[in-house]
Amino acid sequence: MSAEPGTVRPGGRTARVRTAVLRAAGDVLAEQGFAHLDLADVARRAEVGKTTVYRRWGSVTGLVADLLSDMAEQSVPRTETGSVLGDLRANAALVRRTLADPRQGALFRAVIAAATSDSRTAEALRRFYEVRVAEWVPCVEQGVARGELPVGTDAALVVRAVSAPLYYTLLTTGVAPDAAAADRAAEAAVAAAAAGVYVVG
């Protein structure tokens, strides 16, 4: 089976081309939204030949999928503080900083909006969050091992519970959550987890 366009990890000049194209695609998404993402325009911004972009990514959705894959790979690794609350506060702070960033926040809004009507973008977005949730799952698992959370706690559900209210705030108000909101999100998720809300099976 051949790889999906844009998913092969290149080196050398090809890597530089990929970096430039993904940066340009992210800029367009942040500035103008998914509807205005055009491969020819991205190629022009990246100073890359149109045929290179069309051959490599094939479509706008293929390009967005690769952009999200790259973002997941480049994201900051988890923080381990020695307590599940400390770890998840760090997670919430990272999510808040991302959403508050003028470029990143706008980019995520554009991709989320596109995912509501485009199945390939939706799948790429799901894969992005699967990678990010998996990165932070060990923090919750360690909390269970230390006895801070009950055995049987679904770690992925807890991690998602931290970021969910932060995204909801951004999407429903248009304003990025502040540091206090991030702390509340982490504290609420940990309190619910400690009460057994996320015990499954």
Rank of each mutant, 00 (worst) to 15 (best):
S119H: 12
L99C: 12
V42W: 01
V158S: 00
F108T: 10
T51F: 03
L99Q: 08
F34I: 10
A92R: 05
L88E: 01
A156F: 02
E148R: 07
T116M: 14
R78N: 10
S83M: 02
A156T: 03
D66A: 15
A106C: 07
R127Y: 07
S69E: 14
E31G: 07
P150F: 09
A20K: 07
S83N: 01
S69D: 15
G86L: 07
T14V: 09
V131D: 10
Y54A: 14
G33Q: 01
V42E: 01
R109E: 13
S117D: 11
G33A: 08
I112V: 14
S117L: 13
Q142D: 09
Q32C: 05
S117Y: 12
L107G: 02
C139T: 14
A113C: 07
V159R: 00
T51E: 14
W136R: 08
G86D: 06
F108Y: 15
Q32H: 13
A30M: 05
R97W: 04
F34E: 14
A46Q: 01
V133Y: 08
G147D: 05
G49F: 11
E148C: 03
V95P: 04
V28K: 08
R23V: 15
V42P: 00
A106M: 07
L37W: 03
D87F: 07
D154S: 06
E31Y: 05
V111W: 02
E148P: 03
R126P: 00
T51D: 13
E130R: 15
S117E: 14
F34C: 09
E73K: 10
D70G: 06
R146Y: 13
R146C: 11
A43K: 02
G62E: 07
A72Q: 02
V144Y: 01
V133L: 04
R160V: 13
F34W: 15
E80L: 09
L88R: 01
Q142E: 13
V140A: 02
T51S: 14
R16W: 03
D66W: 03
V159L: 00
F108N: 15
W136A: 10
A40R: 06
H36R: 15
L99S: 12
A100L: 05
D41H: 12
S59N: 06
E130S: 15
V28G: 11
R132V: 00
V137N: 05
R126K: 00
S75H: 11
D101G: 11
V140S: 02
